[in-house]
Design a binder for these strands. Sequence first.
RNA 1: GGGCGGAUAGCUCAGCUGGGAGAGCAUCGGCCUUACAAGCCGGGGGUCGCAGGUUCAAGCCCUGUUCCGCCCACCA
Length: 879
Amino acid sequence: MTMELPKGYEPEDVEQRIYKLWEESGSFKADPASDAPPYAIVIPPPNVTGALHMGHALNNTIQDILIRYKRMDGFNTLWQPGTDHAGIATQNVVERQLAQENTDRHRIGREKFIERVWEWRKEYGGKIINQLKRLGCSCDWGRERFTMDQGLSKAVREVFVSLYEQGLVYRDDYITNWCPRCHTALADLEVEHRDVAGALHYVRYPLTDGSGSLTVATTRPETMLGDTAVAVNPEDERFKKFIGKEVRLPLTDRILPIIADEHVDPSFGTGALKITPAHDPNDFEIGLRHKLPSVKAFDQSGRMNENAGAYQGLDRFEARKRVIADLEAQGFLEKVEPYSHAVGHCYRCSTMIEPLQSLQWFVDVKPLAQKAIQAVRTGKTRIIPPTWEKVYYEWMENIRPWCVSRQIWWGHRIPAWYCDSCGKVIVSREDPEKCDCGGELRQETDVLDTWFSSGLWPFSTLGWPEETDFLKTFYPTSCLVTGFDILFFWVARMMMLGLWFRDEIPFSDVYIHALVRAEDGRKMSKSLGNVIDPLEVMDQYGTDAFRFTLAAFAAQGRDVKLSMKRIEGYRNFINKIWNSARFVLMNLEGVPEEVPEEYLSLADKWILSRLNSTAAQARETLDGYNFDRTASALYQFMWHEFCDWYIELAKPALYGKKGDKAQAAARWTVLTALKDSLKLLHPIIPFVTEEIWSRLPGAEGQIMMADYPKPDPVREDRESEQAMDLIQSVIVGIRNIRGEFNLPPTKPVKTIIFCPDRPTVGLLEANQSAIQDLAWVEEVKASLPGDKPKSAAAAVAGGVEIFIPLAGLIDLDQEAARLAKELDKVSGELAKVEKKLGNAGFLGKAPEDVVAKVKGQRQELSLKKEKLESNLTRVREMV
RNA sequence: GGGCGGAUAGCUCAGCUGGGAGAGCAUCGGCCUUACAAGCCGGGGGUCGCAGGUUCAAGCCCUGUUCCGCCCACCA
């Protein structure tokens, strides 16, 4: 039965084998027919292009902790895995590949290109899935889904067509964010604002009647080639006289009206604003209000077009230089001031966004947002931590139409057809053959925003629009775990679409975790070169150590600054667990299945009681998503209570006579405590716990399928905990003296302990050997107070006085100094407590239990002070 | 421009509804005690960013303030 374990834990040997065991035994599988209460999590689908980074590692570790906890706790769990097709990101990757082959997507054509992307996906798309397995994720892999799967595509089409039928999807010639590099429109959310050091150019526009000129200020002088008006504020006295007049646009022959619009801020720039409806969102709105013509000056690559006259063909930045030079040469440029302002950039390729008027598909999400707001307001969906609720409401309440069309090829093609003969637009669930008028149909070439399909993830992955068993059993899902960076992109959309199409929340809890940062607090990024690869961490320290670190760092509302030092520390913890198991396995011969209660020693009862409250703590903190507290409670228990105290205390009994009652009890207790500890730890550190479990006698099946320990009131034993408290303080008191006097354990000492009463004497006598073994003393004499030994070091702990006769061994001055220091500390504490008790306000207003507690402290402290004083006097007299 | 978070030991951070300042690492001292030196035992170290206020009592609540960080935003 006794199997020797290797001396140190070797994760690389264990992890692969254990994971295979789990997967092959079907332990990850969800069962829609089960009677157990369901608990479901849908994975935030990583991009197929992705490689596991720290964000994934944290995100998925948390999900795995939850799902393993719930699985052990008797729930019918589903962790639904899958990946996202990541439209623009994936298209970019494959385009780069084509570029290396000296070709591009236009040359090979749409169909071939899409084939290429699928091939790419087949070859590389599984990478991140394997990395998640490495992390130990217990997803139901047989149910893996991809946003471009047939089933999910059907869901996408159903949703799009329904929204169209409800009048919520429409096509509009509107100003949108255009990425001149990706050649596609982007949603507002997909634009990142960054501060750019630019310049404000003051350009003079002469009035056509020769009565002077108006000067406008602009950061983008090149857009003047698309100007169709100049606007001033109607209340601005300086310009009232110009309203209705006209100016001549420099560098062109265009005549522009001077109009009045509220939007113009008289205090900014010159108070006169050039209006470029086709290339500025504000100007676009003003253009609509005043029915201004719209002149596009750029093409889709950000080059000047035929409307730009002499500048045609120039890149927008080159055009800016030329326009400025020409304005200056012709005397229209009054001045240039440095000006820093936020400019939109593409979130996929960082190219400067070009606001561009174009024909796009939009979803009017306002009515959907209303439901999504309600669901959180009424508490049907909880956001944890709740600080994010405000951010969520803010965004939902100010939501604007969602531009969902993308001018790329990789994605769900919009199911719309245009008839060139009659102009009809058909949006349909089935591909139409011909138009009603008999005309030929042309399908929309645009695809949908990636987030459109991921927004359906909680129900599309479960089979919707079919009413599958999985959908019925697991929707609404239980918890969504995500970083705040995709709160709007993803969570908000799932809330809206889930509520709209299922009339039910997609998940009851949203747990928002922090971002993983580098040790210096900065974001990990390739350009900063401070990226830590999770795979390397796992190679170096093992997956469990890594997972435990992430859990320990996952305090709510605070970013994770990952430190290698911490990982190393938790690697040591894993090894500590391993060695404790090794010890237990060496001491299990003849371990009974049960032991009568009366066999249990004080230490046995104590550790079982501590284990019990640790189980309660673990459950409480897991239920509240306080993973850092779970980790620290388990760390504290496992290392400092189980290993440091219990195992040491149990050694004499374990090493005792064969068949001895105490030995049987200790063997049973040490095994029980280890087993339950492993179960409590399993959700965080699955590999090492499973490996140890497999070697423990009487441990059936897999630990991942074992019951998560429940606190049992019978095992709660306050009396034993109090008794152990005293024993521990006595031991620590003695060790303390040893430490202070640099007495190595090999130096034999004796100890005399004065107890306040008979029961205490009895307690210490009964635990004499424990004190001897753990404090390295050869003799313990407990008695009621009597004659104090001469030349002894003394300590006061838990109401008892400890003396260690050290004739000739100690320096009395040193001992006096030590006692004086201790006395100082106690006096200080006592003074604080007495001040409190001397305060009438405190006695009158503080709750009774608090007053009683402080009184108890006074009692204890003054007793301690008294004893310290008398000992100090005695030592001083001896000098 | 609006909103949010942080500031506690040398470092990284806990401290939940106000009631005796904690952990890990680092540091100092002692130990190869037959599970573990990736270990064991002990010690030192904090006016809880600053200034006010509420309270019998403030790291925690309120007001102001400084310094970091983040998010949102169509002032050219």
